[in-house]
Design a protein around this nucleic acid. Structure first.
Lengths: 340, 340
DNA sequence: TTGTAAGCGTTATCAG
DNA sequence: CTGATAACGCTTACAA
């Protein structure tokens, strides 16, 4: 076991000063070829690598991005993380991942822990609880300290920062339009409560599509699920109440549960009822029938979020025009076997 | 925008020395109550938080763990990450996540990037390519530098370090035994090549179960899939070759693809063929029929891995008995609808 | 061409 | 009780 080599040790071994070593390694013109060769050879031989922490302290930048996600055991977030990690790595950045577990308190604690110099900027998708409370002081505080923040997927207007979202409304509209185009007359919606903004937007897309086609909108065609743990029963009840020939669900799980419930009422998919989900994850691809879905390009979203942050971090400080942008990632409909 | 407060600034404001401020904040007995009150009040008012990077440099420890996983868009790894993050956070540690994307080179680069002082220890599951190459120099190098390493799931004997694995052999045996107990006479296995050690171990479990029950083992009952991208066709062919009444698959995807293929040959699940998968993920839970599986307690695995690392990091250096342990996490069979 | 010294933000030691 | 100083590992004016 040999501990890490430092400039000081090299200097001592080679009987030169620390700064000479430093300069030699950085190929400074100040240093003679001879010395450079000697130092470089030694450094290479003993595999010298500058200490990141020392560099961070000196440069006042850590080259790491803090990422806070509500939940990691979730296909969509996972693809976003991959995108972020991928882009960040290409640019020489690390990613520190924290999970809020959809808890407001954990989100606050995580942000405080990271904001103390550990990272240069945040990428985050806020927790359910935070959206409910509408308390964003922790995020605004960080922004006020001058730390760049990028929000993705679950964003809120009350926070001024760069954002990356998908076109939830449009995606939902496309889905419902497809159902109508293929002959559905009575389309049900399975969604989340409105405080989850993506649920709200997708609901809006559903409504818009129906409006555009001059179809009536009934409250009873819409199921809003508060608590995922009893979604199965709720959905089972819901599909019995009306004679739907189309269902649009705002996530994979609801879509699959709807199919399962419909099957129990002797309906065939897609012959009797067409079903479309949102998020093109492993379930959609592996289910029988394979699900028609609106895909969410999570990896692309992650890459864009990482790009926004890193661009801001590397832009010379002088440009003080605080212009925030919101990037909208396009979804598209993946037609498979659960629709006609 | 107000940048972060430092000790120096507090000292200047309050007209005392930096060290007085430092001591006051840490409640040192050396400082008068008066001064302490004054300093603390000021610090609180302006929300002073010590700079992590400076602390890291001083203490020569970062309180962060480096995590390298082959793939993040994968339910099992995701649960492990959750476990690691959870435990690490409880202990005041951060987690830096890197993806190797199953590439040897990326694994090496990531390790080098992190080993330069950014982290105190590694948790890792090695990439496919690394297992194929059997080149572990990068990992051994880090270990030789005195940095603790914990491997999980995909582990190899050639590396001396703490490990966390699941009882793959036993889990597989239990699965196959269940098939036999419920009347299966001809059990097929869908697995990975032997260089993926978990695949190998599960294959071994299959073999052991058959042996114990004095059933013959035929090569043709076993399908080893090299390349996941054409697994569907291979499985389709495979289930046609023999008249299986039971299938054991080493992951969810293969299990589901087997069911799909069997259905096309007019077989009913589980009436004609029972199917068991490995890894109890979202697919198993949502499929119709719901899959009987061997569950892998990923979160528990992650917690144990994090515990191993942190225990080692916080143990006083003196104890130089290099004893490595391997923790085996127990799986259990989740019986659902795809078996009789 | 090389070396000295200051500084990044902390803490610890020691002197006043 | 308070403060100067050194140190963690590195970079960079500035001096020699």
């Amino acid at each position: 076991m040999r501990p890490k080599l430092t400039l000081k040790q090299i200097a001592r071994e080679l009987d030169v000063s620390i700064s000479t070593v430093s300069k030699a390694l950085r190929d400074s013109a100040e240093i003679s070829e001879d010395t450079k060769q000697k130092v470089k050879a030694f450094a290479k031989l003993y595999n010298y690598k500058p200490n990141n922490i020392a560099l961070s302290l000196k440069n006042r930048k850590t080259k790491t991005i803090g990422l806070i996600v509500p939940e990691i055991v979730h296909h969509f977030f996972t693809t976003v993380i991959r995108g972020i990690e991928e882009y960040a790595n290409e640019k020489g950045y690390h990613v520190m991942v924290c999970l809020s577990n959809n808890s407001f308190d954990k989100e606050v604690i995580n942000m405080e822990m990271l904001a103390n110099g550990s990272i240069d900027g945040f990428i985050l998708s806020i927790s359910k609880e935070t959206m409910l409370k509408e308390d964003y002081h922790h995020i605004n505080e960080v922004i006020n300290q001058g730390m760049p923040v990028v929000m993705f997927d679950r964003v809120v207007d009350q926070i001024k920062c760069d954002k990356v979202v998908i076109d939830d409304v449009e995606g939902a509209t496309k889905a419902v339009q497809h159902l109508l185009d293929t002959g559905c007359k009575k389309v049900g919606l399975i969604t989340t409560p409105d405080y989850i903004n993506v649920g709200k937007l997708r609901t809006q897309g559903y409504t818009e599509a129906l409006n555009k086609n001059r179809m009536p909108i009934h409250e009873k065609y819409i199921l809003k699920i508060e608590d995922d743990s009893n979604s199965e029963e709720l959905i089972k009840e819901f599909v019995k109440t009306e004679d739907f020939d189309g269902i649009f669900a705002v996530n994979e799980e609801y879509a699959v549960q709807a199919i399962s419930a419909l099957r129990k009422t002797e309906k065939e998919i897609p012959e009797d009822v067409s079903v479309i989900g949102f998020t093109d994850g492993v379930i959609s691809k592996n289910f029988i029938p394979k699900l028609t879905t609106v895909n969410q390009p999570g990896t692309e979203m992650g890459r864009q979020a990482a790009k926004l942050i890193i661009d801001k971090l590397e832009k010379p400080e002088t440009e003080e025009e605080e212009q925030y942008q919101t990037i909208e990632i396009k979804t598209n409909l993946v037609k498979r076997e659960s629709t006609r």
